[in-house]
Design a protein around this nucleic acid. Structure first.
Lengths: 211, 211, 211, 211
DNA sequence: TATGAATGAGCGTTCATTCAT
DNA sequence: GATGAATGAACGCTCATTCAT
């Protein structure tokens, strides 16, 4: 392993260290209340160091979404690649994968929509922006593939599979956002996971041609 | 019309003027990037004037959500009150109502989740908070009533109707949020409305016992 | 009584109404936390009206000091004019007068030093400034007269009577300020009046040649 | 000298730099008219930097009082600890100490009463508040000890020594406040010091049993 | 490379003052 | 004269970002 390579590896390690710290802090405080100093402290680094690895706060933030998308894609490709599953089983596997995504990082999804703001987007480098697009497209593509297969097999209703993928993702993140925001009208804990399960259930039923 | 009444009307006019301006600015920039001065400028007023009508930024913001909830409830009660509709027809009417809500104010829903933050809630007056809770409860209640009826009639799957209402709302707002955030991966316009329609369709199918 | 005179009288009545309200509000909140709107409300007038009678907040404030000085002067002249009292008795009478001043308006004295700030003074009209100077001089003069008499009679120590008057007033206001500020180290109530009494006592003893 | 120590020293230097600037600005403009930006400019720092060393404006302000109290206590303990002085000599020494306190920082005493406001106190950290209380108590205690001794020795009038200490402090600060506020009725300079001397003189005379 | 002290622009909010009615 | 809605300058404070070490 050359020096250059070792350096690169070290650099990546640092990046991950910061991302992990940022995730914790953003999750706890939300994007706006989390300060760069909070994150630096959590990462046991100085604020200045953060800027050696990320151009600015927005870009650090965006990197988090990247990470969860990467995890999601791995799970989805695993589902898609499993030739032994029929369409119905793949839907179940998809639902399970989404559950795992939620467990992997329950809170960051809530903040993921922060990226929406075009003001935020303006601060991102073109490379990062391209990467986000790429991963988003990839993950939605993987989901829509599952639906496409079911449609081709004649077991799913014949709707545009990309739209279905969008809807599926919307349902998933919508439930998480909404249930998390229910501090307003307090309800018992773990209600979220149960609701998520029902949501997947209803959606799956709606997807299938004959129930 | 007495002087008092005219004054009251004038005051309400100003409030609406501010709310309309705030809606535009919040929609464009999001809660945190929107400044009170932005809103004042948009309303062609001075910053100080905003505070004559709203206690603070949070409360101005919350007022926007109130407005759309009020509109939603009116529509929902109309659906619920119509004795001539069977359960299946009511679902259709519900979907139409939600469509109108979206058209009534397509952008504010995007930011509506900002209310979640307990930090935000802290700054709201008790009255406003109570009103938000009341309206939230009412609108979800109206939706769950429709589902309850269908379950009682034996035409809908037997799931907890309040959970179903939560999911329905999550799906609705989730799709709007997600599609609106798709500036990232630009797609043709009006795709949102079509997606929303498919989403309602799939959900309705999933809801019904026999397709 | 001519119309002009009646108007003038009416105008004076309003001024007093405002001054009384201002006294209450300034006493309760202090100069800086008291707003013109607070005072207007207390006077059951509108903020704009206050400016018909007083050039600005500073000038309204200064008028309060004027009023207490006027009361003080009346009391002092009464003491000085009483030919039946010898020097020792006049000191006692002086002390009593100061007690009454304190009771007349215990709190405003605390804020009276606000006038010190040259920034404040800048906002006062020349007439008002002249009037304050005149009354200050007069009241201190009346006090120093009492001391002068005692010195001339050979019963008081031979110090500069104007300096003594300054010291006497300093002691008086110093005790009030200090005791009022003792929220820091809380002590039992009415301690102030007792302390004031001891202060006068010690000062009087120090003033007299033979004890 | 270790790095840590050098840093600590540097930090203390900055604090003093700010305190000195704040003293000048507060003295000139009073607490309320002095802005943090004024102080920052005077200290040749940016506003943000002030907040690295002091939690807020109130706490910066309170630190000034702390400084003078610390100096006062040192002087007082020196007087109290000197076994060679009899009660009369201790009074003289006390008066000299107070003179030095005045010279040490003639202007800050003027504003020291600002601390009274419970609104101000609310913004202070518990530690700072405790420290202020502690130092106030200590300094008044030291003064009252001197009086107690004189009373025990039978040379001072038998009054409550704590009340006497309060009065002594009131007289001291009252004279400074009053004379400083005499910009209103301008008088020759150094009059203050002469007045202070007379004030101490009269008080001492009043304190002693036989003159 | 890493630091962390310093920056300074920016924001929410207040309130003395004005002026059209 | 009286009103009170509207103003807008001003302030305390925060925090993303920079840069000398």
């Amino acid at each position: 392993m050359g020096i250059r390579e070792r350096k690169e590896r070290e650099r990546e390690r640092r990046r991950q260290q910061i991302i992990v710290a940022a995730k914790r802090v953003f999750s706890e405080k939300g994007f706006n209340k989390a300060t760069m100093e909070d994150i630096a402290k959590e990462a046991e680094l100085s604020p200045g160091t953060l800027y050696l690895y990320f151009k600015n706060k927005d870009e650090l933030y965006a990197s988090l979404s990247l990470r969860i998308l990467q995890y999601l894609i791995i799970r989805l490709e695993h589902v898609n690649g499993n030739a032994e599953l029929d369409s119905n089983q793949k839907i179940d596997a998809l639902n399970e994968a989404m559950f795992d995504v939620y467990e992997f990082d329950p809170l960051i999804i809530i903040n993921m929509f922060h990226l929406q703001s075009s003001e935020t987007l303006k601060n991102l480098s073109d490379e990062l922006l391209a990467e986000i697009e790429e991963l988003s497209r990839k993950s939605l593509g993987a989901i829509s593939n599952i639906f496409q297969e079911g449609i081709d097999d004649g077991v799913f209703v014949d709707k545009h599979p990309i739209a279905l993928a969008d809807i599926y993702w919307s349902l998933f993140s919508g439930v998480i956002l909404w249930e998390s925001s229910k501090k307003i009208i307090n309800r018992e804990k773990d209600y979220l996971k149960e609701t998520l399960r029902i949501a997947f259930d209803v959606f799956s039923r709606g997807l299938k041609k004959n129930n």
